Amino acid sequence: MDPPGFLNVRRQVFRVEFPDGSLSDPFTYDSVDRERLDAVVIAPHYRGADGRRHVYLRSALRPPAATRSPAVCPVPEKPTLGALWELPAGLVEVDERSAEGLQRSAVRELLEEVGFDVDPSALRALGPPSFPAPGMVGERHFYFHVEVDPARQGQPTEDGSPLERLAAIAVVPLDEAIELTRRGEIEDAKTEVALRRLAEL
Rank of each mutant, 00 (worst) to 15 (best):
S105E: 00
M136R: 15
P64T: 10
D159S: 09
A49Y: 01
E109N: 09
F142V: 05
V94Q: 10
E17P: 02
D38G: 03
R97H: 05
S24T: 11
R10D: 10
V32L: 15
R11A: 03
H54F: 13
S24P: 11
L126W: 07
F142Y: 10
P70M: 06
E200R: 14
A194H: 06
A177L: 04
G184T: 10
F116A: 02
G135T: 08
P26H: 02
V172C: 02
F144C: 05
P88A: 03
M136G: 12
D33F: 09
D119C: 10
V32H: 05
G51N: 05
R108S: 03
F144Q: 01
A60V: 11
F14Y: 15
D20Q: 09
P150S: 05
F18T: 09
V137N: 05
L37I: 08
T157E: 06
P19V: 10
A194F: 06
D20P: 08
V114Q: 04
V118N: 08
G48V: 09
Q155H: 11
L166H: 15
E147V: 00
R197A: 12
L163T: 14
E158M: 07
R68D: 05
P129L: 07
Q12D: 12
A168P: 05
H54K: 06
R11G: 03
A49R: 10
H141F: 02
E179G: 09
G127H: 11
R10C: 09
G82R: 01
Q12N: 14
V75S: 10
V16P: 01
E176G: 00
